[in-house]
Nucleic acid binder design. Sequence first.
DNA 1: AAGACGAAAGTGGTTGA
DNA 2: TCAACAACTTTCGTCTT
Length: 308
Amino acid sequence: MYYIKKCPECSSINLFVNREKGEVICKDCGLVVEDKMVEFGQDWREFEDDRRFDRVRRTGQPMTYTQFDQGLGTEVGQKADLFALGSKDRNKFFRLRKWQYRISTAIERNLKLALAELKRVSSFLKLPKSVEEEAAMIYTQAVQRGLVRGRSMESVVSGALYAACRRHEVPRTLDELSEASSIEKKEIGRTYRFVTRELGITILPSNPADYIARFASSLKLTAETQSKAVEILEEAQHEELTSGRGPTGIAAASLYVSALIHGEKRTQREVADVAGVTEVTIRNRYKELLEKLDLDKEVKKLKKKAGK
DNA sequence: AAGACGAAAGTGGTTGA
DNA sequence: TCAACAACTTTCGTCTT
């Protein structure tokens, strides 16, 4: 709903809203239209709230980081005013020098903090050194391009790590990143997409096979089961069962079937937990696997054996 | 009693007009 | 920018072991 209002004095629609004071002023005749505020209080209120929420959301979190810049600007200005009593050229020189110094240390300080955080998250997830370094590189580039402005440092760190993982084919799920960094999954995904797009990093879709080894080891499955799972996975890919589906779900279902065949049965619940998907997803993938591949024969054989 | 299975409704992200 | 859509989740009831 929009609010087209007229000035009661001159019928102009050229009204100016001062949100801080809660006033509506006619730009043409200067009348403060107060009674309108009361009358349409509800409408204006909603408008105001929306705007404020929007503003808070856009500038809320990153304030600690942008604040440095803002603080810097005024500080230099104030000192410059004091020095203005002396030589203007000297003053200008000092101001510029200080400005440059502060800017460079600002980036450095940010980097130091960020890289410490990156290290922490990385070691928490037991990521290889190469991934950590790649992530650090991505983050550094992001800072230099000013991509951190407008989002929190931590989320960009997580995004960089996630991207680095993907590129090195040691994917971690967004859930794992989220747990390690205590940043919302959504937020990590968003910054990840943003940063990779802005930096022109190519992301190949993650391969379910990359998840198998990790899932298998947390489920304590044997190597045979694991390689069987990879086989199943390949067949599934051949049958085009994998496109458009979440890679973790497919990996989980392959492992589940494979474990079944090798008599190392795990419950759907167990597999679902380590893969970070639900049982339902495993069931759906599992069903597709049985239908498209000839696995149902093998599974039936096993059932017969168990029956005897 | 626990696990497997499936239906139905809801959620967040992608896509195409 | 918005509505349609597919994948996935949540929840819950029923069947099997």
